[in-house]
Simulated scan of single mutants.
Amino acid sequence: MHAILHALSITGSMAWEITWALILGFALSAVVQAVVRTSTVVALLGDDRPRTLALSAGLGAASSSCSYAAVALARSLFRRGADFTAAMAFEIASTNLVAELGVILALLMGWQFTLAEFTGGPIMIVVLAVLFRLLLRDRLLRTARAQAERGVAGAMEGHAAMDMSVRGEGSFARRLLSPDGFTATSHVFVMEWAAILRDLVVGLFVAGAIAAWVPDAFWRAFFFDGHPLASKFWGPLIGPLVAIASFVCSIGNVPLAVVLWKGGISFGGVVAFVFADLIILPILSIYRKYYGARMALFLLGTFYAAAVVAGYAVELVFGGLGLVPDQADATIPAEGVTWNYTTVLNIAFLLLAAALLTRFLRTGGLGMLRMMGGAPSTDSDHPHH
């Protein structure tokens, strides 16, 4: 019982530490999605030129941070005419370059990891684009498109197919501050939370259990701690494999990244671990349904290689600049709720979340929430009032 309570206390402390950051990140994402239409995004992602990929990364960074929703949205963009490489770049950015992930990394691990995230993410996209140019054959792409057009439903398909942006003319601020803008923001906000809550909770519980129950000696041996060169080589290779086996994706894997970092994985290994959220086993199964088994294996190989290269690049650059923090300073939040800036921010942002949730419930949000798990019969935009 003591061991269970210890694990739960670590889980609770981590959750309390990141609550305000999550609400802030999802609110910002909801604001953008409330005023930018999906059809506008598709029109901008018609090829795989560097400028287009940079734009797709920027649009992805402003959208959903749930891995399942990102994968479903990327398929929806691909079906509507977006270039496949651009859609995958959008997918990577929407889970690995979002504001809430950066803030949570800074809170739990340090600003260096946030900087590494925004450095390694573009590197991963560039590597993936190069691999696609060299290895992706037209025949495989045609097969994947044919499979995508069959409309096989997957996790979060309904959510991805909904375009909840505000209709009408006017400036960004005018549309956002209108009653429809408030309603659209509240709907996106709550549905984003519904999309990620399961993975976040699982990630926190897994991290709490591992932190409490797995001895540090195991991690030190597993990650070759004490052997600097071997550790730097091994970390980016093993990090994504740990992520694949952990089943935890998106923001949910940050608490586990804290445990791995404290346990001795290299700096580049942490980065590669975080970037592997789009090739965990459940998502590989979704790729198989969306694009076919061969494309699923192709995405596994290319995403893994891109995450590894990004991990090595970050390790070399940050190591050379002396920006890798000391692992001896790594700590896992365990103090619980105390009266400090975290508590003040949590109270303020929980009030914001309550206001958005109230608006959501008063404007028919529960009906749309039920649509999230299933694919609509068409891929047309859903008007929002």
Results as ranks from 00 to 15, higher is better:
V188I: 13
V309R: 00
Y341I: 14
I244C: 10
P228T: 07
S13M: 08
A207G: 12
F224S: 07
S94C: 03
P179Q: 06
I10D: 07
A328M: 07
W20V: 14
R150Q: 15
Y291M: 02
A153Y: 08
L115M: 11
A173S: 13
A330E: 08
T185K: 01
C66S: 15
F275A: 05
P282T: 04
C66Q: 11
A86E: 04
A328N: 11
L73F: 10
T302Y: 05
W219Q: 02
M368H: 06
L366S: 04
L204Q: 01
L101N: 14
F182I: 14
A207D: 06
V242D: 06
S165Y: 00
D48L: 12
H385P: 07
A21E: 10
A353M: 13
G158W: 06
A148L: 09
K232S: 14
S266H: 07
A330M: 13
A148C: 08
A217K: 09
L5E: 13
T338L: 14
G25H: 14
V152C: 10
V337F: 13
F222P: 01
E335G: 15
L73T: 15
G319R: 09
G264I: 00
N96L: 12
G110H: 07
T358A: 15
S165K: 00
V270P: 06
P236T: 10
G81P: 05
A89M: 02
I18N: 11
S76V: 02
V35T: 10
M109S: 06
T363M: 00
R49A: 15
S266A: 11
V274M: 09
L241S: 08
A34R: 02
L200Q: 06
P383L: 03
A70I: 05
T302C: 12
I286H: 01
G374S: 14
V309I: 14
A15W: 15
F222Q: 01
A144Y: 12
L297E: 04
A211S: 09
G322A: 00
Q327E: 12
A209Y: 01
P376Y: 03
I104T: 12
W339G: 01
V324Q: 08
